[in-house]
Structure formats: C-alpha cells, structure tokens
C-alpha cells in the first residue's frame, strides 16, 4: 500500500459519524469538477479570447442554442468545486489532519487549491465585461509591484492590447487544470464520486441553470459606480482601498500560504522526542490559531463586502 492511500484509509477509519459528512463534500466536489470540465469543453467551441470578447460571451448567453444553460452550469459547478474543496481543506485543518500528511503531499494539495482559485479568477476575467477587464488589469498591476520579478510575472498571467484575454484563457483552459489534475492525481483516487454523487451534482447544477438567470454583465464601455471582483477577492479589494497593493495583494496571501505549508512540518517536530518538543508544540498551537484567526477575519471582510460593498 502506498503512502497516499494509507493516509486516506486512516482518515476513513478515524472519523466516526463525521465521516459521512466529511467524505460527501469531496465526492460532490469532484462530481462538480467533472461536469465543469465537460461544460467548459462545450463552451470552448464558441468562446474566442480575441476581438470583442464581451460580445462573444453575450452571444453565447443569448444567441447560441443552450449557451445560457452551459454557461450557468460551468459557472456554478466551478464555484461548487472550489467551495467544496475549500470546505474539505478547512474540515481537515480544523481536525488537525494535516499531521498525517507527508510535507510534499500537503504542499501539493495546498498548491492545487491555490491553482483552483486562480482558475476561478481567470474565469472571472474571461467574462470580458467591465468587471473581468478590471480584474485582469488589477492582477497585472498587482503582480507588477513585486520587486525584481514583477514585470515578468505579470506578463506571464495577462496579455496586452488585443491579446489581453489570451493568456488568462490559456491558463484557465490548459495550464491551471493540468497543474491541478497532476497535483491531486493520487489524492482523489479515494474520493472518486459514484453515479449517485454525479447525478446529485448534475441535477443541482441543472436546476440552478434553469431557475437562476445569468448575472448581468457590465459592458466594458459603460460607466459603473462600483466594480467588484470575484467573491473570494472582495476582502483583498476592501484592504486595497487603504493599504499598499504589494503588502495586501501579494505579501499577505503569501505569508498566509507559507504558514499553512509549514504547519505539518512543525507538528512533526512536536510529535518527536527531542529537546524542541515543547517549543514545537507551542509553535504548532500558535500557528494553528493564527491561521484560523486570519481565515475568520478574512471571511468577515468578505461577508462585510458582500453586504455593504467593498
């Protein structure tokens, strides 16, 4: 038995009643991912990342047969996948299951979650409306603030002029899904959804697509009083109003990710008999509560921005 499957078995054995709840989330999430990929492939037959992208998206929504249906399915299953993966990660984290993961695997899974958020962000840009255009520009200018490597990094993610949407398109459709699939390849083998989960996800997404109208896209040339980013970016958008873009948009998220990445290594020290045992135990507790407090504070910022605007 390899290391990964043994981790999953340990999780399945040790969780009691919560195992139903804990294991249903990732299975539903994966079912959503498969539907999202399928609807994305269908949408790619009409979507073009060049020229008037906004008009292209509006044609998909209002002119192409069932375009609205596939756009809505793609949107909601993408959101559901990332949301459920985030929930799954938080569930693991709160139960301190990171202790069971080898550092390499934990790093891969956290990176996969970041790749998922980047996929959502690039998808938001690809709407081609005012919000998407501004989101792409903000990402570009925020990366630009990184000392030394900023110019290179920003140009890897966002194009310029007519090719503005091409690089986000490439990342959204190719690089990020491939990176995510590679990083979670071993982990998901234990969470693959059966027909039941796939059916539940499809019926839920289909019902959403039929009952909920697509969001109103703002034409790029229209004036809007407030332009907001994707829901998970709203906290950063709020902080950007008064803080330096480099600190808020780059440094703060990086510090948070580094804290999440090192916690399994710190916990390993506290589990061993060594002269660092006591200090490592305190450090792990400190890290654990710092990560939870930071996540909670960011969640409050998002909710506040959703209610009152960023």
């Amino acid at each position: 038995m390899n290391e990964r499957s043994s981790v999953v078995n340990r999780i399945a054995k040790g969780a009691g009643i919560a195992v139903t709840f804990s294991t249903a989330m990732p299975r539903l999430g994966l079912a959503s991912l498969f539907i999202c990929l399928l609807s994305g492939i269908i949408l790619s037959f009409y979507y073009r990342p060049f020229g008037n992208v906004f008009q292209n998206v509006e044609e998909i929504t209002s002119l192409v047969p069932y375009g609205w249906f596939f756009r809505q399915i793609h949107y909601i299953t993408g959101q559901a996948f990332v949301f459920l993966m985030l929930f799954h990660t938080v569930d693991h984290f709160v139960r301190r299951r990171y202790r069971m993961y080898p550092a390499g695997e934990w790093t891969g899974l956290v990176t996969a979650l970041i790749a998922c958020f980047l996929t959502l962000f690039t998808g938001f840009i690809l709407k081609g409306d005012k919000e998407g255009l501004f989101a792409g520009t903000i990402l570009l200018n925020m990366l630009d603030t990184i000392p030394m490597a900023g110019k290179w990094l920003s140009r890897i993610f966002v194009g310029s002029g007519d090719a503005f949407f091409f690089l986000p398109y490439l990342h959204h459709c190719l690089f990020l899904p491939v990176i995510t699939a590679y990083l979670i390849r071993g982990h998901v083998s234990a969470w693959l959804p059966g027909k039941g989960f796939a059916a539940v996800a499809f019926v839920a997404a289909g019902t959403y697509a039929i009952l909920v109208d697509p969001f109103m896209d703002i034409p790029p040339e229209a004036q809007a009083q407030i332009v907001t980013g994707p829901w998970f970016f709203l906290g950063i958008q709020t902080l950007l109003k008064s803080w330096n873009p480099f600190y808020v948009g780059i440094l703060l998220p990086c510090v948070f990710v580094v804290l999440v990445l090192i916690i399994p290594a710190v916990s390993r020290f506290s589990g061993r008999e060594s002269r660092f045992k006591a200090k490592s135990g305190i450090a792990e507790k400190g890290l654990y509560w710092a990560i939870l407090a930071a996540s909670g504070a960011y969640l409050i910022l998002i909710v506040k921005a959703l209610v009152n605007g960023p």
Binding site: F134, T137, I138, L140, N141, M142, Q223, A224, Q225, V227, L240, P245
Partner: peptide
C-alpha cells in the same frame, strides 16, 4: 494610477 481601473 493605483491599479489601472478606468475612472469615471
């Protein structure tokens, strides 16, 4: 000049 959005 902050992060490149178009001003109204």
């Amino acid at each position: 000049t902050h992060l490149g959005c178009l001003v109204n």
